[in-house]
Design a protein around this nucleic acid. Structure first.
Lengths: 213, 213
DNA sequence: GTTTCTGTTGGCCGCATGGCCAATAGCATT
DNA sequence: AATGCTATTGGCCATGCGGCCAACAGAAAC
């Protein structure tokens, strides 16, 4: 099974292009089969090339895993933050973020996060990628909070601290949704929303209303 | 390297005893080298027996991993809850729990949790063990909260919901401490403590004082 | 002391992986 | 059209794994 992309093999691509193609294939593998399924062979198979070629561009599998994670996560990431910025209104932006990222269903990019956290403990290059991605997420979230403060939508307590606190809760949600524990029993989302409302001096349900279906 | 326990091989143990010995060795491997390092060979090496013997007691590695996780986690777990109960006072008990479980340093049993969450996604038996352990933790935490309510130390909102919310935050802390992100920058512990104080109608710093060094 | 039961051994197989390398063949330059 | 560069191939090796099994040996029963 799985000859998903036997792309009529356009041979001899310029290195930069081929490298990008490999990263995208690796990210696809990571999203569909898990980060651990990213191997020279699996990526090569998806691309329809020889495993040796993948090795030619990435001297170690770990580097490939790191790139795959970064690409898989940052696409979802960029899209969401793009949407948040386009919403203009900071409150609506936050609501959108909570709606997108705090769900009970295990989605591929959530699994990739969990895979990466696990691998980071023993693979330095993956750790570096994960650490970087988490810090980027934090700083982007801080930007949103800062913007809300500037626009006088939020009370200015400590955006930096609040961002870390929110990310801690969000990552906890990823874990719980991955295991499938506490499904539909308690609405942790609403708690996070209310917590944030309090921290930002928003009126009740300003954010939690994102979860009204 | 690593001939940690060439225990003067007491051959031919009664099955129940040998089985327990294997589980303990597997748990030790999981704590020291990670849950993924639990293999027929590694456990056998630590015990000083043949890999085939381990296989004789566990038909699949997955079963061994599940047992190793359960044993590794529940020892820490039982000890902590034992201490909490011995403290008598529910508020002091909660403080103790937060102090023990919400730390920034990555400790072995935290890593085991992360390993298990990761493995649970693709190994049914590990998933069952993790799911069970999480539900047990939740119910034990609810007991503590209920006790506090009965003793009129806590205001009785929703112990069941609060327990899940706390565990979500705690598991998020495990992830972040594992990556080592946000080290010493923001005191998430204090936030969790304050959040809990509010939820339980405790006075400010009733729990957070656990973190005064 | 002999027999019986079964805990235990040691080795085997098939498989997938990471990593490596000489040989090949596509594309650009001339 | 001939040449040179290099992207690409295909196969190789060692390692470690899960799983299996016939043979062995220690302890208990007779």
């Amino acid at each position: 099974m799985s000859a998903p992309q036997p792309t009529a093999r356009s041979r001899r691509l310029p290195p930069a292009e081929r490298r990008q193609e490999i990263i995208e294939a690796a990210a696809a593998v990571a999203l569909e089969e898990g980060l651990a399924a990213v191997t020279y062979r699996s990526v090569a198979a998806r691309l329809g090339c020889a495993p040796g070629l993948v090795h030619h561009y990435f001297d170690a599998v770990e580097a490939l895993e790191a790139e795959a994670f970064t690409h898989a996560v940052s696409t979802d990431f960029e899209r969401t933050f793009q949407e948040v910025e386009e919403l203009g209104d900071a409150v609506q932006g936050l609501r959108h973020m909570l709606r997108v990222w705090v769900s009970e269903s295990p989605e591929p990019h959530k699994t990739v996060w969990l895979d990466a956290w696990y691998m980071a403990a023993r693979k330095p290059r993956v750790h570096a990628a994960v650490d970087h991605a988490m810090r980027i997420t934090h700083s982007r979230l801080v930007e949103v909070l800062d913007r809300g403060v500037r626009e006088e939508r939020f009370a200015s307590h400590d955006p930096d601290a609040l961002a870390w606190q929110l990310l801690t809760a969000l990552d906890g949600v990823i874990v719980h949704s991955s295991i499938g524990v506490n499904q539909g029993i308690v609405d942790v989302r609403r708690t996070i929303a209310h917590f944030t409302e309090t921290a930002l001096g928003l009126e009740r349900d300003a954010l939690a209303s994102a979860f009204d279906d």
